[in-house]
Amino acid sequence: MTLGDRLLIVAILISSAIAALFIYLKPFNKELINEQTVIISCKGAVIKKVTLSEKRHGKTFNVMGRIGLVTVETLGKQIRIQEAPCHDRLCIRQGWISRPGQSIVCMPSELLITIEGNSPVDAVTR
């Protein structure tokens, strides 16, 4: 063990401590874990990706479905279809989704909204 070795070990320890401070304590990382990606696809093709996090304020946006514009609303970590041109409006009645693995489907629009990630449970019956 030379002096250089010892200095190197100390330098690595210090840098890992600094890295730990930055990574574990910085508030932005809370958001990093809690972020969820929502994939909106039409006819199987991804048309939009949205990131959901608790800090984000609600907003609405339009996506083009097969039979017209569909209005999607996000609020915190939730997402729903607010307005759609379909007759049965089943997609709107599916309401808010927020957990990974959940999805909203609008068949007439051929639109699929999925929250990315694995569901913590295999399935949910309602």
């Binding site: 070990i9 690595i12 320890l13 840098s15 890992s16 401590a17 890295a19 730990a20 990574i23 574990y24 990382n29 990093l32 874990i33």
Partner: peptide, 16 residues
């Protein structure tokens, strides 16, 4: 996924 950076301090220390 950027979240793997959480492993960085652990991996730095165990490297020693």
């Amino acid at each position: 996924n950027r979240a793997v950076i959480f492993y960085l301090p652990i991996l730095l220390i165990t490297g020693i």
